[in-house]
Design a protein around this nucleic acid. Sequence first.
DNA 1: CTCCAGGACAAGC
DNA 2: GCTTGTCATGGA
Length: 200
Amino acid sequence: MIEIYQILLNHFGKQKWWPCRTGDRFEIIVGAILTQNTNWKNVDKALDNLIKNKMLSKNKIKKIPISRLSALIKPAGYYNQKAKKLKAFVKYNGKITRASLLSIWGIGYETADSIMLYAYNKPYFVVDAYTKRIFSRLGLIKTQDYEYVRNYFESKLPKSISVYKEFHALIVELAKRHCKKEPLCRECPLAGRCRHAKRL
DNA sequence: CTCCAGGACAAGC
DNA sequence: GCTTGTCATGGA
């Protein structure tokens, strides 16, 4: 597994995730919620709107009317749902752990682990749809169950925050560049490992 | 025009 | 328990 990480790192270079302009962890959390099933470019516009209107803070999100909040994050799509999710998150006051994040409405496994890893620097491997798709097509995982896949990666990798961060980012980069193109295995850095004729 | 993007939740079976 | 529908903009 670490070999695959090295191949991707050598091929694409460091991705330096999570993108964050303010350097504030709250921006990472908001981004993690807004990017659910959504292109990052759209999320970027929504974050721009929040920053330009000086609304990117826990207290501001608490106080802003939900109708205005949803208008500001509109480019990110699902804006009504996501406005509710942001409200649900800022309403929570307790200690932030993986379990407590999962108890908040609107935060599922991937979002919780993204927040833990990239905002709080805790060693949870983030599993997204790309990860499941690519590694099952490589023949390395049997099921798509989230916790199974996360456990698989965490057990086969050194427990390193930076490796977890980069690897997930590299998987997304690999997917963006090669998962859509057909046939896969020519320019793909994992070509030699792909047992499938189809694309990753 | 269709398809999908760094998901999560609820309803239906 | 597992499968399907819903949420929605913007770019390819």
